[in-house]
Design a protein around this nucleic acid. Structure first.
Lengths: 146, 146
DNA sequence: GCCTTATCTACAATCAGTGTTGAAGAACAA
DNA sequence: TTGTTCTTCAACACTGATTGTAGATAAGGC
């Protein structure tokens, strides 16, 4: 993802206004590797701007997704997650206990659908999701069973 | 998925009762390849039993999923989809326009995470989702742009 | 600084899915 | 078949994430 300054430029170039709320959200997202939900972004943003509304956060995140600066992921955790790492496609690890999401940096072969197997679908993108338990939840599950 | 009769047996064997509503749902699911949502199953079921409630449908679908007879999928279409084809893992094609889901029968290599790359995750399952446009939505999109 | 227009906040609504509860019904034993 | 017990049913209200609305506010060009 770009820096807050670059994102402000991009918003202006696209006829969008650069408000204090949006810049606050840009800053919150910068360097965030946790795949935050809109709610999580809102909580972080209110630490800087107490009055920012959740609706504004949703709106700005969707704007960023429309511009291709972040990607929105529905990984089955009950809420949409936002991923600032949009430059190279990568699989995701999802904890089925706490919902934590992590990028998997290991390389995977490009998935190609064999000719004719797509039944007329025009395929745009492929996603790989691994589900399991994150280290923390593994730990607490082990403790429960002893 | 098993036949309605086999499912009834299985329910009894697991201490669950076999009600008319459940048998109706078994029949609806049999041979359904459309990955229906609970809502869709409910609509189909009401054609046989007008008074069956959506809650009962949810309950029975979850029971079936708990017994491993169907799998529940959150593919980002806004509702959980249920897949009676649980015997062999397979990728899914999801239409980003109408939400239609199709099994991809083509074989894909087992996805294995390279050692150390999982950062301590205990990985249980892998999912592959292809997103794109189904033939019908491709058609209507083409017509719109002419 | 002024004006136009996009954006903001607060509030209410939507939508999929779940908890609750009295009533109905299935299983099982005698 | 009958009675007992326990599960399940259906209606209703509720949750939690997300979106629509509308009046107030502020950005950005002049």
């Amino acid at each position: 993802m770009r820096t807050p300054g670059e994102l402000s430029e991009l918003f202006r170039a696209n006829g969008r206004k650069v408000t204090a709320q949006r810049q606050c959200i840009f800053r919150v997202l910068e360097g965030d590797m946790t795949h935050p939900s809109a709610e999580a972004v809102h909580i972080a943003a209110t630490r800087e701007m107490e009055t920012i509304s959740l609706k504004t956060v949703y709106q700005t995140l969707h704007d960023l997704a429309d511009l291709g600066e972040i990607s929105s992921l529905d990984l089955g955790t009950g809420m949409i997650r936002f991923d600032p790492n949009v430059d190279d496609p990568h699989p995701h690890l999802v904890c089925r206990h706490c919902g934590k999401v992590r990028d998997l940096v290991a390389a995977f072969p490009d998935l190609q659908i064999p000719d004719g197997a797509d039944l007329g679908f025009e395929v745009g993108s492929a996603e790989i999701v691994f589900r399991g338990l994150c280290p923390e939840c593994r730990q607490s599950t082990l403790q429960l069973s002893t």
